[in-house]
């Protein structure tokens, strides 16, 4: 039993964090809204540091690492507010393509040469970034398929978050490649896990931004962050992230662990998403309240994370949905 990340895992996380801080500023995110939704050069840069190759085996040029190695970098994706389908691509599509017997596609995806997104079961009805994706990993009747962009029909379903370009996707399975051997249950658990990781990152970003703001904003001659009413709300957000994070990391470990059964894995993932959704919900409420009116404006960057928080809280199953799944596993 050892529950601490290695120096290498820390370094990888820091590399991703620094890269995103540099290349994915709020200005760059806003600029992406006027274009095709992409941040120029970001995808290639993340591919170069290996983020897209973490869950691919060496046979397709991957790093052959596990979910536990990817979970904190994806948390950073939430922290930075990345408007691209990184979690979907690196966390779900790449391993599904590799496990599903499509080494050529897996290799291109692991290298970041193509962009993939996913559409799975109940939680993934609306597909993120389907308009720009080269390839979609889709679930149909309990099977996974690799679906090239040329054969899909899209119905846009615009989101409150301008960075999340959602579509309903239709396709004919005759035009798709079955990913035989890729388990849709595992794919779905990965999607939930990495959504939970992003929730955690968004919650932390909201907390950091708010702590900074209330430390400088003065009213009645002193920082508003010196008032207990403000302090206590922010402490509650810190408590929520503190106790959500280990469950998210635990779920990341469970997915790849041989000692966990399918039921354990699913329960661990659902516990993680339930607490991460709750944490980001609270972070959104508190961040806006403690910012006051400035937080309610479209110009101020807080809105980027508020809206991402609202979206991710319910994407891939909200807290109620996942608590319900845990209830079933507990026999209640």
């Amino acid at each position: 039993m050892r529950f601490s990340f290695s120096a290498e895992q820390d370094m990888f996380r820091d590399t991703v964090r620094d890269l995103l801080a540099d290349r994915c500023s709020p200005g760059a995110i806003r600029a992406s809204w006027d274009e095709d939704g992409r941040v120029a050069g970001l995808w290639a840069a993340l591919g170069e540091v290996g983020l897209t190759a973490v869950l691919a085996p060496e046979s397709v040029g991957g790093l052959a690492m596990k979910e536990i190695d990817l979970v904190r970098p994806i948390e950073e994706v939430g922290y930075a507010g990345v408007p691209e389908p990184l979690a979907e691509h690196a966390g779900v599509a790449v391993p599904a393509l590799a496990e599903g017997g499509s080494p050529g596609l897996a290799e291109a995806a692991a290298a970041g040469e193509i962009t993939c997104s996913i559409g799975l079961g109940a939680g993934g009805r609306y597909v993120l970034a389907a308009e720009i994706a080269d390839l979609l990993v889709m679930e149909r009747s309990g099977e996974l398929y690799a679906v090239p962009s040329g054969v899909i029909t899209l119905t846009p379903q615009p989101s409150v978050d301008q960075s999340r370009r959602l579509c309903e996707v239709d396709f004919d399975v005759a035009d798709a490649t079955p990913l035989v051997g890729a388990d849709p249950g595992v794919a779905s658990d990965r999607a939930v896990l990495f959504a939970a990781a992003q929730c955690l990152g968004v919650a932390r970003r909201l907390l950091d931004a708010t702590v900074e703001y209330v430390g400088t904003r003065h009213q009645f001659g002193k920082p508003v962050g010196s008032y207990q009413a403000v302090k206590h709300q922010l402490s509650d957000v810190r408590i929520a992230t503190e106790f959500a994070a280990p469950l998210v990391y635990r779920a990341a470990w469970s997915i790849a662990a041989e000692s966990t059964t399918t039921l354990d894995r699913r329960r661990d993932v659902s516990m993680a998403k339930a607490v991460a959704s709750d944490a980001v919900d609270r972070a959104c409420r508190v961040a806006l309240q403690c910012h006051g009116a400035i937080g309610y404006t479209i110009e101020y960057d807080l809105q980027l994370w508020l809206k991402r928080g609202w979206a991710l809280s319910s994407a891939w199953g909200d807290a109620r949905f996942h608590r319900d799944r845990v209830s079933e596993s507990l026999g209640i």
Binding site: R2, F3, L247, A274, R323
Partner: peptide, 24 residues
């Protein structure tokens, strides 16, 4: 039912946070 499950989840959160802290 949600409350019962939430109590159970929280005890797990406390458990893993403690293991996380203990490892440190």
């Amino acid at each position: 039912r949600d409350e019962v499950t939430d109590a159970w989840i929280r005890s797990e959160a406390y458990r893993w946070q403690t293991y996380f802290t203990a490892s440190r």
